[in-house]
Amino acid sequence: MIRINLLKGRAGSNDSLPPALDASGAPSRFLTKREIVLALALVAIGCGIIAAQVLGVFREPLSDDEPLVAIYERPAAPTPPPAVAGEPPAVAAVPIVPSEPPIAAAPVQSETSIVTAEPPVQERPEREFGAAPTHTVAALKLVPWGQAIEILAEVQGQPQYRSFWLTNPDRLVIDVEDAELRVSPSELSRASPHPLIRQLRAAQNSFEPARVRIVVETVRDGPVEITANGVGISVKISPAP
């Protein structure tokens, strides 16, 4: 093998531009000593300013009547506007009929969410931080049932989940706990797949804890039935009777 490199045998010296990597592939020195000293000085000044602020060097002295301890109060919840006769309430509960025996309601995530009945949310087993989620949401399928529509989230294992409503727009949220989303991108968001559904989307809501959130934008007129079985989680939305 001939290993001559003509870059190294350059006769003149018109290397005006320093290469990103030198001929051996190692990073070349971009900074001169003066630039390094200047950068260190700027960093030191920055650290000094931050330290001074932390220590309160620049804080204005307190006035005599200013309390030394601030007391934070949670603001009172706004009172809902009085209902107008003839109009439905802004947030109406929609019956969600679980097929499994209900248990205590899970904590409500939104100020406007209404959870009428929840599937079992059992005590989650301790999962090691960073460990792979137990369940996998593998697909989102739509199964029409006459005028009704069933959204079937294929989940391996017996997933724990909870559901609640959010408004503006009305949407049903199903959180699948300890689960990882492995749905193809084309299934992650669908616009108007059915007259009862304005939009259906799914996302990995959080990684620690692992949680998959399925959001169904729908009207809240008809009954919604959520069941869990060995195949996954089924959300059946029917039109208003």
Partner: peptide, 10 residues
């Protein structure tokens, strides 16, 4: 980044 320049024949 050109790290090697060689004659075509080589």
């Amino acid at each position: 980044t050109p790290t090697l320049v060689q004659a075509q024949s080589c």
